[in-house]
């Protein structure tokens, strides 16, 4: 390629790129994600739900407005879920005084309720166990693997979605610290 042609093409590319860079905020303005849109994805409002505990007490996500909540989908046959749950208990014990709640939603439509309940009670977990009997909430949260953990900030917006074993005790403590600091600043 001749030198003049290269310089011409380069200047055209650089000019276009610079204009595109400057015009991006004008042509494609960043709109804050619409609060009315709910989706199980970081940045969106967490989809609302209302479920019962094994003792038939009703719990809605909206009951915990203003508090950080971990929605944890699990099943008694899921060894990865069971491996994570003691860690959740430790974090819950430490952070419950700050308003932190864990809603451990048993995917009861694909689990044996008696086995799940027996396991949960035998371990002495003090956070709330809820039953997704028809799988509607699991479907709403697009749960494709267990465990799926959705961490929701005090503003009801999804802060993180973790699929699998990633919801470790250390991770949860670090994220909760960040969320609580943000809540204090607001």
């Amino acid at each position: 390629m001749k030198k003049q042609l290269f310089i011409g093409i380069t200047l055209a590319i650089i000019s276009f790129s610079l204009i595109w860079l400057i015009l991006t905020p004008v042509l494609f303005p960043v709109s804050r994600i619409d609060a009315s849109i709910s989706a199980p994805q970081r940045g969106f409002t967490a989809p609302g739900f209302s479920l019962q505990t094994p003792q038939e007490s009703n719990h809605s996500l909206s009951d915990y407005e203003g508090q950080p909540v971990l929605v944890f989908f699990w099943a008694s046959w899921c060894s990865v879920c069971k491996a994570a749950m003691p860690g959740l208990q430790a974090v819950y014990t430490d952070y419950a005084p700050n308003g932190f709640t864990i809603l451990a939603i048993n995917t009861s439509h694909q689990d044996t309720l008696a086995t799940a309940l027996n396991y949960f009670q035998s371990q002495g977990y003090s956070y709330t166990m809820l039953l997704d009997l028809d799988g509607a909430v699991s479907q709403e949260y697009q749960v494709r693997a267990l465990p799926t953990s959705v961490l929701i900030g005090g503003d009801g917006v999804v802060a993180d979605v973790v699929i699998g074993s990633g919801v470790s005790e250390g991770y949860l403590r670090a994220r909760l610290d960040q969320i609580l600091i943000t809540m204090e600043e607001d």
Partner: peptide
Amino acid sequence: VNNPLSLVSLTPSM
């Protein structure tokens, strides 16, 4: 400090 094992946990978010 609280969980030294976090150093080697398989947590992509960390």
